[in-house]
């Protein structure tokens, strides 16, 4: 039970000014999409003529420094997660992170795959998840509008949660990246010292002799 991290900070007082700024933030979201998986293919139709995301001021941006919104479009492997965390930390506050499809939520169809993480929210704060495999453009737009509501109400505060609960997130990240013990029983590589051909053949002979 003590594993749950409960934030006991006071609810932030939202001034009129903050409300106004939130209006600007929600009406101008620049997104950085991290095309890890299949979700990226749903974004072009969402951006172009048919669904036209730019109506709401949402547009693509080239670098994390400029973006407000990080889209994780699909499954995330352990190696990619490292880059996602780096990109997320480079973004300027306030920043929002949207998990796209079922894979960032619980692993999706890759829940039993060894390289794919299952819960994105263990490692970075997720402000909004859009369920589906993959979500259609309508669902994406609906999700973004909900995110806009959350921003206006001040509920999309993942960046604040990340700062407050940094130890919790960092510990979960370190479980992947700074692990010292093997997860399962580990493995002893007989070739760990990178032997030469002669050594390998000698060892082979020795093993055969031992078997005899």
């Amino acid at each position: 039970m003590d594993e749950i991290y409960i934030t006991n900070l006071e609810k932030e007082r939202e001034s009129m000014f903050e409300g106004l700024l939130n209006y600007f933030r929600k009406r101008s979201m620049w997104m950085l999409y991290y095309c890890t998986g299949c979700g990226a293919i749903e974004l072009p139709p969402t951006m172009t003529s048919r669904f036209d995301m730019e109506r709401f001021g949402i547009g693509p941006m080239a670098t994390p420094r400029q973006a407000d919104l990080l889209l994780i479009t699909g499954y995330l492997s352990q190696k990619t997660l490292k880059r996602v965390i780096r990109s997320y930390e480079q973004m300027q506050e306030p920043k929002y992170l949207v998990g796209f499809g079922s894979c960032p939520i619980n692993g999706g169809i890759y829940w039993d795959a060894y390289p794919v993480i299952n819960h994105l929210e263990m490692y970075v704060p997720v402000d909004m998840t859009i369920a589906g495999c993959m979500p259609r453009p309508q669902a994406v737009l609906d999700g973004f509008q909900r995110l806009m509501d959350y921003i206006q109400q001040g509920k999309a505060d993942g960046w604040r949660r990340y700062k407050e609960n940094y130890e919790w997130y960092k510990r979960n990240q370190d479980e992947l990246f700074a692990r010292t013990e093997p997860v399962l029983k580990g493995w002893k590589d007989p070739f760990a010292h990178m032997p030469s051909l002669e050594e390998v053949m000698a060892e082979e002979e020795r093993r055969k002799g031992g078997a005899r």
Partner: peptide
């Protein structure tokens, strides 16, 4: 604690617990 962790992260104040 799957659900609870996410709830805990969303909620603020004393009612969270």
């Amino acid at each position: 604690t799957d659900t609870f962790a996410s709830i805990a992260n969303r909620l603020r104040g004393e009612e969270a617990e």
